[in-house]
Simulated scan of single mutants.
Amino acid sequence: MVRDLFIDTTNNCILLIYEEDNIIIDTYFENNLTKVSDIVNQKIDDLLEKNKTRLRDINNFFVVKGPGTFTGVKVGITVAKTCKMLNNNIRIFLISSLQLMSGIKATMAVLDARSNKSYVGVYIDGKPYFPDQVLDNNMLEDFYSNCKNILKNIKYVKNYDSILLVENFKSIKHLLNEIENIDLLVPLYIKQYT
């Protein structure tokens, strides 16, 4: 049996997805958190214990690398890196917050980057159409208009609001690339652009 654990702690939330043989067995989601780092390990333990498994039984970790808050991004990546250091057979796959927000549909995903800026990702079929970038907020409307001229059915999503994250993960999971060398696990923090 192959066991997967998806972890997103990047944007003041915890989203955990536990799968067995590519079937979602259980999920946990909590939003608007201020101290993700204080509770994430307990939430992971609770989810796995509820499903009669242990962290050491996980074969694959799917981790959101950001953009996100400094602590939030570090938490998910640290869990995966620590498990990989303890068991080199564990596989780690990374996903961008913007890619997760987009899922498989044509989407322009926007995350607040503070200082009147936003991270922007444009995705089609779960793949980046443009590289993720930082834009001034006063440029977003024009950028979206240009995207709509090129991609007729593009949708606009912002800051994890009203997004079906579990469904999005499931729809793009097969596109994610494995990171074999944990030294290449590079987080993307909000405000890293300065």
Rank of each mutant, 00 (worst) to 15 (best):
R3F: 12
T9C: 11
T10R: 12
N11V: 01
Y18L: 13
E20W: 07
E20Y: 07
E20V: 03
D21N: 15
D26Y: 08
T27L: 07
F29I: 13
E30G: 03
V40I: 09
N41I: 06
L48Y: 01
K50E: 13
R54W: 01
R54S: 14
I58L: 06
N60A: 04
N60W: 08
G66L: 08
G66K: 02
T69L: 15
G72R: 05
G76V: 07
I77T: 11
V79I: 15
V79E: 04
T82L: 14
M85G: 00
L86F: 09
N87R: 07
R91S: 14
F93K: 15
I95F: 10
Q99W: 01
K105S: 13
R114S: 08
Y119V: 02
G121N: 08
D125N: 10
G126N: 08
Y129D: 14
D132Q: 03
Q133C: 14
V134Y: 11
V134S: 07
D142P: 00
N146G: 14
N149M: 12
L151K: 09
K155A: 04
V157R: 09
Y160F: 15
S162L: 04
S162V: 11
I163A: 00
I163L: 05
V166W: 10
F169A: 05
L175F: 02
L176F: 05
N177R: 10
I179M: 08
D183P: 00
L185T: 12
T194H: 09
